[in-house]
Design a protein around this nucleic acid. Structure first.
Lengths: 200, 200
DNA sequence: GTCTATATACAGATAGAC
DNA sequence: GTCTATCTGTATATAGAC
Protein backbone atom coordinates (compact mmCIF):
# COMPACT_ATOMS: atom_id res chain seq x y z
CA UNK A 1 0.00 0.00 0.00
CA UNK A 2 1.57 3.29 -1.13
CA UNK A 3 1.13 5.36 2.00
CA UNK A 4 3.29 7.99 0.42
CA UNK A 5 0.78 8.89 -2.25
CA UNK A 6 -2.17 8.77 0.10
CA UNK A 7 -2.12 12.42 1.04
CA UNK A 8 -1.35 13.39 -2.49
CA UNK A 9 -4.43 11.57 -3.70
CA UNK A 10 -6.55 13.16 -1.03
CA UNK A 11 -5.32 16.59 -2.08
CA UNK A 12 -6.08 15.93 -5.73
CA UNK A 13 -9.54 14.59 -4.95
CA UNK A 14 -10.32 17.55 -2.71
CA UNK A 15 -9.05 19.99 -5.32
CA UNK A 16 -11.03 18.21 -8.05
CA UNK A 17 -14.28 18.51 -6.12
CA UNK A 18 -13.73 22.07 -4.95
CA UNK A 19 -12.67 23.34 -8.36
CA UNK A 20 -15.82 21.82 -9.81
CA UNK A 21 -17.92 23.48 -7.16
CA UNK A 22 -16.25 26.88 -6.88
CA UNK A 23 -14.10 27.23 -9.95
CA UNK A 24 -10.31 27.31 -10.05
CA UNK A 25 -9.66 30.92 -9.11
CA UNK A 26 -12.06 30.98 -6.20
CA UNK A 27 -10.66 27.80 -4.69
CA UNK A 28 -7.83 28.55 -2.28
CA UNK A 29 -5.06 26.23 -1.19
CA UNK A 30 -6.41 26.61 2.33
CA UNK A 31 -9.78 25.27 1.11
CA UNK A 32 -8.10 22.29 -0.48
CA UNK A 33 -5.88 21.59 2.51
CA UNK A 34 -8.83 21.70 4.87
CA UNK A 35 -11.02 19.48 2.69
CA UNK A 36 -8.20 16.95 2.38
CA UNK A 37 -7.42 17.22 6.09
CA UNK A 38 -3.83 18.19 5.40
CA UNK A 39 -2.08 21.17 7.03
CA UNK A 40 -1.60 24.04 4.64
CA UNK A 41 2.15 24.05 4.87
CA UNK A 42 2.32 20.40 3.95
CA UNK A 43 0.55 20.95 0.64
CA UNK A 44 3.75 22.38 -0.77
CA UNK A 45 5.61 19.17 -0.16
CA UNK A 46 3.39 17.55 -2.80
CA UNK A 47 2.79 20.49 -5.13
CA UNK A 48 5.16 23.35 -5.73
CA UNK A 49 2.42 25.75 -6.88
CA UNK A 50 -1.32 26.06 -7.19
CA UNK A 51 -0.94 25.56 -10.92
CA UNK A 52 0.71 22.20 -10.22
CA UNK A 53 -2.43 21.13 -8.37
CA UNK A 54 -4.49 22.30 -11.30
CA UNK A 55 -2.41 20.15 -13.62
CA UNK A 56 -2.82 17.13 -11.38
CA UNK A 57 -6.59 17.66 -11.27
CA UNK A 58 -6.85 17.90 -15.03
CA UNK A 59 -4.71 14.80 -15.44
CA UNK A 60 -7.04 13.01 -13.07
CA UNK A 61 -10.00 14.17 -15.14
CA UNK A 62 -8.23 12.89 -18.24
CA UNK A 63 -7.84 9.45 -16.70
CA UNK A 64 -11.48 9.38 -15.71
CA UNK A 65 -12.56 10.51 -19.15
CA UNK A 66 -10.52 7.72 -20.71
CA UNK A 67 -12.33 5.26 -18.48
CA UNK A 68 -15.70 6.69 -19.43
CA UNK A 69 -14.85 6.47 -23.10
CA UNK A 70 -13.84 2.85 -22.56
CA UNK A 71 -17.18 2.20 -20.89
CA UNK A 72 -19.11 3.89 -23.71
CA UNK A 73 -17.22 1.74 -26.16
CA UNK A 74 -18.61 -1.34 -24.48
CA UNK A 75 -22.03 -0.64 -25.96
CA UNK A 76 -22.57 -2.55 -29.18
CA UNK A 77 -22.36 -0.38 -32.25
CA UNK A 78 -21.90 3.37 -32.70
CA UNK A 79 -25.57 4.25 -32.38
CA UNK A 80 -25.87 2.61 -28.99
CA UNK A 81 -22.57 4.19 -27.97
CA UNK A 82 -23.78 7.68 -28.76
CA UNK A 83 -27.03 7.01 -26.94
CA UNK A 84 -25.08 5.84 -23.93
CA UNK A 85 -22.91 8.93 -24.13
CA UNK A 86 -25.91 11.28 -24.11
CA UNK A 87 -27.60 9.44 -21.27
CA UNK A 88 -24.42 9.38 -19.22
CA UNK A 89 -23.37 12.96 -19.91
CA UNK A 90 -26.71 14.29 -18.71
CA UNK A 91 -27.38 11.75 -15.98
CA UNK A 92 -26.26 13.47 -12.78
CA UNK A 93 -28.69 16.31 -13.22
CA UNK A 94 -28.62 17.59 -9.65
CA UNK A 95 -24.87 18.01 -9.73
CA UNK A 96 -25.15 19.72 -13.11
CA UNK A 97 -27.75 22.14 -11.80
CA UNK A 98 -25.54 23.07 -8.87
CA UNK A 99 -22.08 23.12 -10.43
CA UNK A 100 -22.29 22.69 -14.19
CA UNK A 101 -19.92 20.56 -16.23
CA UNK A 102 -16.62 19.73 -14.47
CA UNK A 103 -14.77 19.96 -17.76
CA UNK A 104 -16.67 22.59 -19.73
CA UNK A 105 -16.78 25.15 -16.96
CA UNK A 106 -13.08 24.67 -16.36
CA UNK A 107 -12.31 25.19 -20.04
CA UNK A 108 -14.25 28.41 -20.07
CA UNK A 109 -12.63 29.77 -16.92
CA UNK A 110 -9.09 28.79 -17.84
CA UNK A 111 -9.54 29.71 -21.48
CA UNK A 112 -9.71 33.35 -20.44
CA UNK A 113 -6.35 33.31 -18.69
CA UNK A 114 -4.46 31.25 -21.23
CA UNK A 115 -1.35 29.34 -20.22
CA UNK A 116 -0.65 25.62 -20.24
CA UNK A 117 -3.51 24.86 -17.86
CA UNK A 118 -5.99 26.11 -20.44
CA UNK A 119 -4.45 23.91 -23.11
CA UNK A 120 -4.57 20.83 -20.89
CA UNK A 121 -8.21 21.42 -20.08
CA UNK A 122 -9.09 22.06 -23.71
CA UNK A 123 -7.55 18.73 -24.64
CA UNK A 124 -10.18 16.97 -22.54
CA UNK A 125 -13.02 18.44 -24.55
CA UNK A 126 -11.08 17.81 -27.73
CA UNK A 127 -10.71 14.13 -26.90
CA UNK A 128 -14.42 13.93 -26.24
CA UNK A 129 -15.17 15.63 -29.55
CA UNK A 130 -12.86 13.28 -31.40
CA UNK A 131 -14.53 10.24 -29.89
CA UNK A 132 -18.02 11.48 -30.81
CA UNK A 133 -16.81 12.22 -34.31
CA UNK A 134 -15.43 8.70 -34.74
CA UNK A 135 -18.81 7.25 -33.70
CA UNK A 136 -20.57 9.27 -36.37
CA UNK A 137 -17.92 8.05 -38.80
CA UNK A 138 -18.71 4.47 -37.87
CA UNK A 139 -22.39 5.28 -38.40
CA UNK A 140 -21.61 6.16 -41.98
CA UNK A 141 -21.94 9.91 -41.62
CA UNK A 142 -18.86 10.36 -43.82
CA UNK A 143 -17.78 13.96 -44.22
CA UNK A 144 -20.68 15.09 -42.08
CA UNK A 145 -19.21 13.37 -39.01
CA UNK A 146 -17.48 16.52 -37.86
CA UNK A 147 -20.62 18.55 -38.28
CA UNK A 148 -22.76 16.11 -36.34
CA UNK A 149 -20.18 15.74 -33.58
CA UNK A 150 -19.97 19.49 -33.20
CA UNK A 151 -23.75 19.78 -33.02
CA UNK A 152 -24.01 17.08 -30.39
CA UNK A 153 -21.22 18.30 -28.15
CA UNK A 154 -22.37 21.91 -28.44
CA UNK A 155 -25.85 20.91 -27.36
CA UNK A 156 -24.55 18.91 -24.43
CA UNK A 157 -22.25 21.69 -23.24
CA UNK A 158 -24.93 24.32 -23.73
CA UNK A 159 -27.33 22.16 -21.76
CA UNK A 160 -24.84 22.02 -18.91
CA UNK A 161 -24.55 25.78 -18.96
CA UNK A 162 -28.28 26.53 -19.05
CA UNK A 163 -29.10 23.88 -16.46
CA UNK A 164 -26.47 25.37 -14.18
CA UNK A 165 -27.49 28.95 -14.85
CA UNK A 166 -31.17 28.34 -14.15
CA UNK A 167 -30.44 25.76 -11.43
CA UNK A 168 -33.11 23.56 -12.96
CA UNK A 169 -32.32 19.82 -13.27
CA UNK A 170 -35.49 19.23 -15.30
CA UNK A 171 -33.96 21.26 -18.08
CA UNK A 172 -31.20 18.70 -18.61
CA UNK A 173 -33.78 15.96 -18.41
CA UNK A 174 -35.80 17.48 -21.21
CA UNK A 175 -32.76 17.93 -23.36
CA UNK A 176 -31.93 14.23 -23.10
CA UNK A 177 -35.17 13.43 -24.88
CA UNK A 178 -34.59 16.08 -27.54
CA UNK A 179 -31.08 14.85 -28.23
CA UNK A 180 -32.14 11.21 -28.41
CA UNK A 181 -34.84 12.15 -30.89
CA UNK A 182 -32.39 14.24 -32.88
CA UNK A 183 -29.98 11.32 -33.00
CA UNK A 184 -32.66 8.90 -34.16
CA UNK A 185 -33.84 11.24 -36.87
CA UNK A 186 -30.44 11.89 -38.39
CA UNK A 187 -30.03 10.74 -41.99
CA UNK A 188 -27.63 7.90 -41.20
CA UNK A 189 -27.03 4.36 -42.34
CA UNK A 190 -27.73 2.90 -38.91
CA UNK A 191 -29.57 -0.37 -39.15
CA UNK A 192 -32.95 -0.81 -37.52
CA UNK A 193 -31.47 -3.51 -35.36
CA UNK A 194 -28.90 -1.14 -33.98
CA UNK A 195 -31.51 1.43 -33.06
CA UNK A 196 -33.46 -1.28 -31.35
CA UNK A 197 -30.47 -2.27 -29.26
CA UNK A 198 -30.05 1.29 -28.13
CA UNK A 199 -33.63 1.48 -26.98
CA UNK A 200 -33.56 -1.84 -25.14
CA UNK B 1 -24.28 67.15 -21.37
CA UNK B 2 -24.08 65.16 -18.15
CA UNK B 3 -20.41 65.50 -17.32
CA UNK B 4 -21.13 63.92 -14.00
CA UNK B 5 -21.92 60.53 -15.45
CA UNK B 6 -19.03 60.62 -17.88
CA UNK B 7 -16.53 58.90 -15.62
CA UNK B 8 -19.15 56.52 -14.39
CA UNK B 9 -19.91 55.44 -17.94
CA UNK B 10 -16.23 55.02 -18.69
CA UNK B 11 -15.86 52.81 -15.64
CA UNK B 12 -18.83 50.66 -16.61
CA UNK B 13 -17.62 50.31 -20.19
CA UNK B 14 -14.12 49.41 -19.03
CA UNK B 15 -15.47 46.90 -16.55
CA UNK B 16 -17.80 45.43 -19.16
CA UNK B 17 -14.96 44.81 -21.59
CA UNK B 18 -12.49 43.54 -19.00
CA UNK B 19 -14.98 41.20 -17.38
CA UNK B 20 -15.77 39.76 -20.80
CA UNK B 21 -12.08 39.27 -21.50
CA UNK B 22 -10.80 38.12 -18.12
CA UNK B 23 -13.85 37.09 -16.16
CA UNK B 24 -15.24 38.82 -13.09
CA UNK B 25 -12.97 37.40 -10.40
CA UNK B 26 -9.76 37.96 -12.31
CA UNK B 27 -10.61 41.56 -13.12
CA UNK B 28 -9.32 43.92 -10.44
CA UNK B 29 -10.58 47.38 -9.62
CA UNK B 30 -7.10 48.60 -10.50
CA UNK B 31 -7.53 47.08 -13.98
CA UNK B 32 -10.85 48.83 -14.43
CA UNK B 33 -9.58 52.15 -13.11
CA UNK B 34 -6.58 52.07 -15.41
CA UNK B 35 -8.62 51.09 -18.47
CA UNK B 36 -11.09 53.89 -17.75
CA UNK B 37 -8.28 56.33 -16.99
CA UNK B 38 -9.64 57.04 -13.54
CA UNK B 39 -7.53 57.01 -10.35
CA UNK B 40 -8.21 53.95 -8.23
CA UNK B 41 -9.39 55.89 -5.22
CA UNK B 42 -11.94 57.74 -7.29
CA UNK B 43 -13.68 54.54 -8.33
CA UNK B 44 -15.26 54.34 -4.90
CA UNK B 45 -16.99 57.64 -5.37
CA UNK B 46 -19.08 56.02 -8.12
CA UNK B 47 -19.32 52.46 -6.79
CA UNK B 48 -19.28 51.44 -3.15
CA UNK B 49 -18.05 47.90 -3.88
CA UNK B 50 -16.80 45.70 -6.67
CA UNK B 51 -20.15 43.96 -6.65
CA UNK B 52 -21.81 47.30 -7.37
CA UNK B 53 -19.71 47.57 -10.54
CA UNK B 54 -20.77 44.04 -11.45
CA UNK B 55 -24.40 45.02 -11.07
CA UNK B 56 -23.91 48.09 -13.24
CA UNK B 57 -22.23 45.98 -15.93
CA UNK B 58 -25.02 43.43 -15.95
CA UNK B 59 -27.62 46.19 -16.10
CA UNK B 60 -25.77 47.63 -19.07
CA UNK B 61 -25.80 44.20 -20.72
CA UNK B 62 -29.52 44.00 -20.04
CA UNK B 63 -30.09 47.29 -21.81
CA UNK B 64 -28.05 46.17 -24.77
CA UNK B 65 -29.87 42.84 -24.91
CA UNK B 66 -33.19 44.67 -24.94
CA UNK B 67 -31.97 46.69 -27.89
CA UNK B 68 -30.83 43.57 -29.72
CA UNK B 69 -34.18 41.91 -29.12
CA UNK B 70 -35.86 45.00 -30.50
CA UNK B 71 -33.67 44.81 -33.59
CA UNK B 72 -34.39 41.10 -34.07
CA UNK B 73 -38.08 41.89 -33.82
CA UNK B 74 -37.74 44.17 -36.81
CA UNK B 75 -37.37 41.16 -39.10
CA UNK B 76 -40.69 40.16 -40.64
CA UNK B 77 -42.13 37.06 -39.12
CA UNK B 78 -40.85 34.64 -36.49
CA UNK B 79 -38.87 32.49 -38.88
CA UNK B 80 -36.85 35.41 -40.16
CA UNK B 81 -36.44 36.65 -36.59
CA UNK B 82 -34.95 33.38 -35.43
CA UNK B 83 -32.65 33.31 -38.46
CA UNK B 84 -31.51 36.82 -37.64
CA UNK B 85 -30.95 35.81 -34.05
CA UNK B 86 -28.71 32.88 -35.03
CA UNK B 87 -26.74 34.92 -37.52
CA UNK B 88 -26.27 37.75 -35.06
CA UNK B 89 -25.44 35.59 -32.05
CA UNK B 90 -22.66 33.85 -33.92
CA UNK B 91 -21.46 36.77 -36.02
CA UNK B 92 -18.48 38.15 -34.12
CA UNK B 93 -16.57 34.90 -34.35
CA UNK B 94 -13.13 36.29 -33.58
CA UNK B 95 -14.31 37.80 -30.34
CA UNK B 96 -16.10 34.54 -29.47
CA UNK B 97 -12.94 32.53 -30.10
CA UNK B 98 -10.95 34.79 -27.82
CA UNK B 99 -13.38 35.51 -25.01
CA UNK B 100 -16.52 33.41 -25.40
CA UNK B 101 -20.03 34.69 -24.76
CA UNK B 102 -20.20 37.87 -22.66
CA UNK B 103 -23.38 36.64 -21.00
CA UNK B 104 -22.99 32.87 -20.92
CA UNK B 105 -19.50 32.85 -19.47
CA UNK B 106 -20.56 35.32 -16.82
CA UNK B 107 -23.54 33.17 -15.85
CA UNK B 108 -21.29 30.16 -15.46
CA UNK B 109 -18.71 31.98 -13.38
CA UNK B 110 -21.19 33.78 -11.14
CA UNK B 111 -23.47 30.76 -10.92
CA UNK B 112 -20.82 29.00 -8.86
CA UNK B 113 -20.64 31.73 -6.24
CA UNK B 114 -24.34 32.41 -5.94
CA UNK B 115 -25.58 35.74 -4.61
CA UNK B 116 -27.62 38.43 -6.29
CA UNK B 117 -25.08 38.95 -9.05
CA UNK B 118 -25.65 35.40 -10.26
CA UNK B 119 -29.40 35.94 -10.33
CA UNK B 120 -29.10 39.16 -12.28
CA UNK B 121 -26.85 37.52 -14.86
CA UNK B 122 -29.13 34.49 -15.14
CA UNK B 123 -32.03 36.80 -15.91
CA UNK B 124 -30.28 37.89 -19.10
CA UNK B 125 -30.15 34.35 -20.44
CA UNK B 126 -33.69 33.80 -19.23
CA UNK B 127 -34.96 36.80 -21.17
CA UNK B 128 -33.21 35.52 -24.26
CA UNK B 129 -34.74 32.08 -23.79
CA UNK B 130 -38.19 33.58 -23.33
CA UNK B 131 -37.88 35.58 -26.51
CA UNK B 132 -36.77 32.56 -28.54
CA UNK B 133 -39.63 30.58 -27.07
CA UNK B 134 -42.16 33.18 -28.08
CA UNK B 135 -40.85 33.08 -31.65
CA UNK B 136 -41.39 29.34 -31.81
CA UNK B 137 -44.83 29.92 -30.40
CA UNK B 138 -45.58 32.36 -33.20
CA UNK B 139 -44.32 29.75 -35.65
CA UNK B 140 -47.02 27.41 -34.45
CA UNK B 141 -44.78 25.09 -32.44
CA UNK B 142 -47.41 24.99 -29.69
CA UNK B 143 -46.38 23.01 -26.65
CA UNK B 144 -43.08 22.17 -28.31
CA UNK B 145 -41.99 25.83 -28.23
CA UNK B 146 -40.14 25.37 -24.95
CA UNK B 147 -38.36 22.29 -26.24
CA UNK B 148 -37.24 23.99 -29.44
CA UNK B 149 -36.13 27.13 -27.64
CA UNK B 150 -34.07 25.11 -25.22
CA UNK B 151 -32.45 23.20 -28.07
CA UNK B 152 -31.58 26.35 -29.94
CA UNK B 153 -30.18 28.30 -27.00
CA UNK B 154 -28.23 25.27 -25.76
CA UNK B 155 -26.64 24.87 -29.14
CA UNK B 156 -25.74 28.52 -29.35
CA UNK B 157 -24.26 28.61 -25.86
CA UNK B 158 -22.40 25.35 -26.40
CA UNK B 159 -21.03 26.73 -29.63
CA UNK B 160 -19.71 29.76 -27.78
CA UNK B 161 -18.02 27.48 -25.27
CA UNK B 162 -16.40 25.15 -27.79
CA UNK B 163 -15.33 27.98 -30.08
CA UNK B 164 -13.73 29.70 -27.11
CA UNK B 165 -12.15 26.53 -25.75
CA UNK B 166 -10.58 25.55 -29.07
CA UNK B 167 -9.91 29.15 -30.08
CA UNK B 168 -11.27 28.34 -33.52
CA UNK B 169 -13.62 30.90 -35.13
CA UNK B 170 -14.40 28.49 -37.99
CA UNK B 171 -16.18 26.28 -35.51
CA UNK B 172 -18.82 28.92 -34.85
CA UNK B 173 -19.08 29.52 -38.56
CA UNK B 174 -19.87 25.87 -39.23
CA UNK B 175 -22.45 25.79 -36.50
CA UNK B 176 -24.33 28.68 -38.06
CA UNK B 177 -25.00 26.54 -41.11
CA UNK B 178 -26.03 23.54 -39.01
CA UNK B 179 -28.41 25.61 -36.95
CA UNK B 180 -29.97 27.30 -39.98
CA UNK B 181 -30.55 23.87 -41.53
CA UNK B 182 -31.98 22.57 -38.29
CA UNK B 183 -34.35 25.51 -38.12
CA UNK B 184 -35.50 25.03 -41.71
CA UNK B 185 -36.09 21.31 -41.19
CA UNK B 186 -38.23 21.66 -38.06
CA UNK B 187 -41.80 20.42 -38.37
CA UNK B 188 -43.42 23.85 -38.18
CA UNK B 189 -46.30 25.65 -39.77
CA UNK B 190 -44.06 28.31 -41.25
CA UNK B 191 -45.27 29.36 -44.67
CA UNK B 192 -43.02 28.93 -47.66
CA UNK B 193 -43.17 32.66 -48.16
CA UNK B 194 -41.74 33.24 -44.71
CA UNK B 195 -38.83 30.91 -45.30
CA UNK B 196 -38.17 32.70 -48.54
CA UNK B 197 -38.04 36.04 -46.80
CA UNK B 198 -35.49 34.69 -44.35
CA UNK B 199 -33.25 33.51 -47.14
CA UNK B 200 -33.48 36.73 -49.12
C1' DG C 1 7.97 13.63 5.63
C1' DT C 2 5.31 16.75 8.62
C1' DC C 3 3.64 20.97 10.42
C1' DT C 4 3.81 25.89 12.65
C1' DA C 5 4.90 30.27 11.93
C1' DT C 6 5.72 33.66 8.83
C1' DA C 7 7.20 36.22 4.62
C1' DT C 8 5.46 38.45 0.47
C1' DA C 9 2.23 40.26 -2.67
C1' DC C 10 -1.82 42.20 -3.88
C1' DA C 11 -6.69 42.59 -3.60
C1' DG C 12 -10.76 45.46 -1.92
C1' DA C 13 -11.76 49.24 0.64
C1' DT C 14 -11.06 53.77 3.46
C1' DA C 15 -9.23 58.42 5.25
C1' DG C 16 -8.63 62.66 4.55
C1' DA C 17 -6.15 66.57 2.02
C1' DC C 18 -7.33 69.32 -1.82
C1' DG D 1 -15.85 65.80 -6.89
C1' DT D 2 -11.04 64.33 -7.09
C1' DC D 3 -6.95 61.88 -5.88
C1' DT D 4 -2.85 60.22 -2.84
C1' DA D 5 -1.69 57.52 0.70
C1' DT D 6 -2.79 53.87 3.37
C1' DC D 7 -5.38 50.32 6.06
C1' DT D 8 -6.84 45.57 6.33
C1' DG D 9 -7.62 41.08 4.94
C1' DT D 10 -6.25 37.17 2.60
C1' DA D 11 -3.90 34.32 -0.90
C1' DT D 12 0.30 32.06 -2.49
C1' DA D 13 4.39 30.61 -1.03
C1' DT D 14 8.63 29.84 2.14
C1' DA D 15 11.60 28.94 6.37
C1' DG D 16 12.86 26.09 9.42
C1' DA D 17 11.88 23.29 13.76
C1' DC D 18 10.58 18.59 14.53
Amino acid sequence: MPRKTDKRNRLVEAAKALIHQQGFNLTTLADIAQEADVPLGNVYYYFKTKEAIGIAVIEKRAQELAQWIASWNESEGPFARLSTFILHALSDIDSIARFGCPIGALCQELGKQGGSLADLAAKLLHDELTWVESQFGALGAGDRSQEFALSLLSSVQGTYLLTHTFKDPKLADRQVKSLMNWLKALPLKATAKEKELALA
